[in-house]
Design a protein around this nucleic acid. Structure first.
Lengths: 107, 107
DNA sequence: ATTTATTATCGTAATATTGCAATATATAAA
DNA sequence: TTTATATATTGCAATATTACGATAATAAAT
């Protein structure tokens, strides 16, 4: 099979899983950390910084964009990727809600 | 290729990615939520609760155990799965540290 | 000792993800 | 207009993940 049975879970559970999935890759973690470290607006020094090919980075950026974590602004022939602070905080809060809600033991 | 290049990232980045990966599945989210909801100790009503086959649930439990999120205690012929509160909080803190550290914009 | 119930493991099919070369697209510079 | 530079898309190979049937392992019950 190999396909997750999303139908049997709640929207919230699926939404959380999608967010975790986007974050579940060291390259994407590294990209986020690198973007946030930059003083000036980010363009693709990311390719130089991280040791992956340009198409690979481009694909990872697309996935980060897919859940709104970052946004890309075109600046001439370059693109400036920035962290979407509003979404960033919303996601952090969502994860904390999950962690707090589920902080109960049984044994 | 299909294999993540872990060598080029830091241990911390890889560790975070592994944690996110374990959480990146709605069945595992649902299992965690279900376990935490239970008054009494959990056994495998999980299979009845979630709509997945027993081997599939068993495999998901194994993955949750692999990062220490839950622990299984044998009780006769049944196994009681509980959330490991210490590890749970440690991971929550780890994720918050990541989110706080990376909470900088650029544009 | 045999049966029954619970959980784990193995093997496998279907699908998803990762990464890259080749190529396309778009804009700036010459 | 041609060339150079930056980024995105396509296609593909390698590997990982998801799910389940079959089966093994374990322990209680008979």
């Amino acid at each position: 099979m190999g396909v997750t049975k999303t139908q049997i879970f709640t929207d919230k559970q699926n939404e959380l899983a999608v967010i975790f999935k986007v974050l579940a890759n060291p390259a994407r973690i590294a990209i986020l950390e690198y973007i946030s470290k930059q003083e000036a607006c980010i363009c693709n020094d990311i390719v130089d910084e991280i040791g992956l090919a340009q198409p690979t980075i481009s694909q990872h950026l697309k996935e980060l964009k897919s859940i709104g974590l970052i946004s890309g602004e075109i600046e001439g022939k370059r693109v400036c990727y920035c962290i979407n602070l509003e979404r960033w905080s919303a996601i952090q809060e969502m994860l904390n809600t999950f962690f707090n809600k589920t902080k109960t033991n049984c044994c």
